[in-house]
Amino acid sequence: MLEIKNLKKSYDGVTILHDINLTINDGEIVSILGPSGCGKTTLLNLILGLTDADEGEILFQGENVLELPMEQRGFNIVFQDYALFPNLNVYKNITYGLRNRPSISTRQEVEDLIDLLGLREHLDKKIEQLSGGQKQRVALARTMVMKPKILLLDEPLSALDGVIKESIKAKIRQIARDYRLTTIIVTHDPEEALTLSDKVLIVQNGTISQYGKPDDIIKKPENEFVKEFILNQLLIKKNNIFTLFRQGNAPEMAVQAGAAG
């Protein structure tokens, strides 16, 4: 269980985040949702340990980790731009961490991850030969080899399009379920957040606007911001889609989530 209590962060006297209180249960997928500049990436960096907090506590399994340096917290992140190492091929990227800690994953566990993420045929490729979705899966595999206690994902879908987006969503869900891994995702896209996660944390102006299950957020928006900016956006999307399909074009095939990416 990850508990955050009264977390506060400011840069040069400007408060970025304040009064952050929340609890995330083991194995949950939580999305941090908000407009750009709301402080969601700062929150992610605080949990990761890349940034120091001004006040508050971050408790993981009851222990305050705020004073621990990043590399000792045991959390791990996949950055938005993947940060893959172009001088190494796919396989060497995936097993990068094994050079430092050979026993962290067994050979079998690595092979399982490669198969789970569908990377078997790409292992000898260079990073520059991969598509966006493939890069994302390599970055996920590389991070999973390190067996993170919490997986942090920074805008994992924003650089991907269409069907690939759905397939990566499915992979993220599968990983969280199979490995019972607490996963925290930063996103600016309400549709992504509400369809991917168990709980959604809506951040606005540096503090929590609403935190709850997707259902609750749709049915019981707690304030104007959630109504105006989150739900309204989805409503427009919904209407657009409905208009498209009303004109006699019945959908002929279902979306194949989890297909190729």
């Binding site: 890349l50 590399e71 992140i77 950055f79 940060a83 430092n100």
Partner: peptide, 27 residues
């Protein structure tokens, strides 16, 4: 070069110097 390399590599157990040798210098 990607600004997150050092952070990523550190999370995989690299020291700064190791990252420079294994990732930054080759690139």
């Amino acid at each position: 070069m990607n600004a997150s390399w050092e952070t990523t590599a550190m999370l995989m157990g690299d020291t700064w110097l190791k990252t420079i040798v294994r990732v930054v210098t080759p690139n």
